[in-house]
Amino acid sequence: MHSKVVSMQEAVAAHVRDGDTVVIEGFTHLICFAAGHEIIRQRRRDLTIARLTPDLIYDQMIAAGCARKLVFSWAGNPGAGSLHAFRRAVEKGTPKLEIEEYSHFGMVARMSAGAAGLPFWTMRNYMGTDLPVANPRIRTVTCPYTGEVLATVPALNPDVTVIHAQRADQYGNAQVWGLLGVQKEAAFASKRVIVVVEELVDESVIRADPNRTLIPGMIVDAVVVEPWGCHPSYAQGYYDRDNDFYVAWEDISRDPAKLQEYLEQWVYGVKDRAEYLARQPDLKARLTAKDQYCEGVNYGF
C-alpha cells in the first residue's frame, strides 16, 4: 500500500471539481475550515454545498461565490447570531443561491441512506409541518407491514466529503473522539473522501485502539496533515472553539465589504493554513486544550 498523504492544495486540486456536491462535515466540532479556505482560494464554482449546519465556513464559501446551492438543516451562527452572507443570498438574492432544506434528522437520514447504499431513508417525522411544502423532496411511504405512513428523504451521495479527525495513519484510517456528528455516514456516502488530521500517526497506533477508528482507510482518497485545521471550530483534546471569533463574525458578515476584506486578508491573502496560523501567534496560548486523558482498555484475548 502507498501513502495517501498530500498537501491541502493537492487534495483540493485533485478531488474537488467545479459543479461537485461537497460536504465538509463536523457538528460544531472538527469543522475543517482549512479545506473550505483552500476551496475558496482555488476558486471552485457552482458547488452544491451540503452540511447540517452551514456554519461560518459555508457562509464564507457563499460570500466567495463558490456555491450554486446550499443543502442544510440549521443555518445560524451557533451561540452568536446569524450567517449574514447566507441571509443576504436568501433575502436579497445576492449572490444567487438555491436552497434545499431539511431538519437535522432529515439530513442525518439522507446521509444514512447514502452510506447504506439505499435510495431513501424513512422516519416518523414532518407530519403537520410546512417543511415538505417548502421541500418537495420530503415525501412519504406506506409501511408494507403496518400500513403506517412514514416520511422519506432521498439519499445524499456527495462527490467529495472532507472529514477532520484528531489522527490517522498514512492510509487514512482515521480516529475521532468527542462529538462524532454525522461524519461516518457522510464519508461512507461519498464518492471521494479527504481526511484531514491534527496528527499523522503510525498504523500501529490505530491498530492499538481499533474501536476509536471512525473512518477506515479503504474509503479514503487523500490524507492531509493540517494542525489547527479546524480553527475557529475545535478539536477535542487539541484546541477549544474560538467563541470570540464566532461572535465577531456577526459584525464581519453583516457588512459585505468587511466580509470581503476578511476573505482578502485571511483566505486569499495567505497561501495555506500554516501562514494563517503564523499570522495569529496568540491562538495557541488562548485556545490550546487542557489535558484530560482517559485510561486505556484491555484488548487482549
Partner: peptide
C-alpha cells in the same frame, strides 16, 4: 418562504 423578509435558521432538530 421564497423571498422571506427575515430568513431564520430553520428547524435544526426542533421538528423531530
Amino acid at each position: 418562504y421564497e423571498k422571506p423578509k427575515v430568513r431564520l435558521p430553520g428547524s435544526g432538530g426542533a421538528a423531530e
